[in-house]
């Protein structure tokens, strides 16, 4: 159990509004992730990949069932604790809109630093360093909306990683990228994910599969192991 970072037990997520919709993208899901694993969540559009990452990333909670994080039931966590975990334990690269469009790159990268329990004094340095690593130092003062798609995705990744999270959640990180940018992003992940870092990538991109150890497929609210 100790090496299980994430465990879902009978987790169900249901979206329901009378007369409008009744969806169960996660239906009694049992799922666990070991420390250091690289996992891909595979599935067609609208099937529940984002829903799963949101539950795992503590952005939303399951309708029923349990979620254990490092052996502790997240139901016992306070709002503050969850916010703290979102800030420092998880690095979440959100689908499509991972940056605040009309903020500068600097302000976007500063967000996770600002919400730390102890604000670092050398924020500017940390931001510079993280930009230097992805070769985008010169974009520090540029507003996110002026960046190219590839640059934007790299910044989004840098933002998710700036607090050195244990678990990285990436939602379709290569979706709108060309071949060259795709390679860059996958290389980035490869470089980061050493040792104990755990990563879950929601994707329907073949390229990404080469980088992971385990592929899960979502269908009908269930998770199936597709390959290792």
């Amino acid at each position: 159990m100790a090496d299980r970072v994430i465990t879902l037990k009978g987790a169900t997520k249901r979206f329901f509004k009378k007369g409008k919709f009744d969806l169960t993208p996660l239906d009694n899901v049992n799922f666990s992730v070991k420390r250091g694993e690289r996992i891909a969540i595979w599935g067609e559009s609208g099937i529940g990949k984002t829903t799963l990452l949101n539950v795992i990333g503590l952005l939303s909670s399951q309708t029923s069932g349990d979620y254990y994080l490092n052996g502790r039931n997240v139901k016992t966590f306070s709002e503050n604790k969850k916010a703290h975990l979102r800030n420092s334990y998880f690095g979440y690269i959100i689908q499509d809109f991972a940056l605040v469009e009309n903020w500068t790159v600097y302000n976007n990268l500063k967000l996770p630093l600002k919400n730390r329990d102890k604000k670092p004094k050398n924020s500017k340095e940390l931001i510079r360093e993280s930009l230097a690593e992805i070769g985008l130092e010169s974009k520090i003062g540029v507003e996110a909306r002026h960046l190219s798609v590839g640059e934007r995705q790299r910044i989004a990744i840098a933002r998710a990683l700036i607090n050195s999270p244990e678990v990285i959640l990436a939602d379709e990180p290569t979706a709108s990228l060309d071949a060259k940018n795709k390679d860059t992003v996958i290389e980035m992940f490869d470089k980061i994910c050493t040792g104990d870092k755990t990563i879950l990538i929601a994707t329907h991109d073949d390229e990404v599969l080469k980088f992971v150890n385990t592929v899960y497929r979502i269908a009908d609210g269930k998770l199936f192991i597709e390959g290792r």
């Binding site: 990333g57 952005l59 709002e79 503050n80 969850k82 916010a83 703290h84 979102r86 800030n87 420092s88 998880f90 979440y92 959100i94 809109f97 991972a98 940056l99 605040v100 976007n108 967000l111 996770p112 600002k114 919400n115 730390r116 933002r159 998710a160 607090n163």
Partner: peptide, 16 residues
Amino acid sequence: LNVYIVQITAGLSLKK
């Protein structure tokens, strides 16, 4: 919403 989601994923709590 998207701006707030970005902030929330970066650790912004409702209280904050």
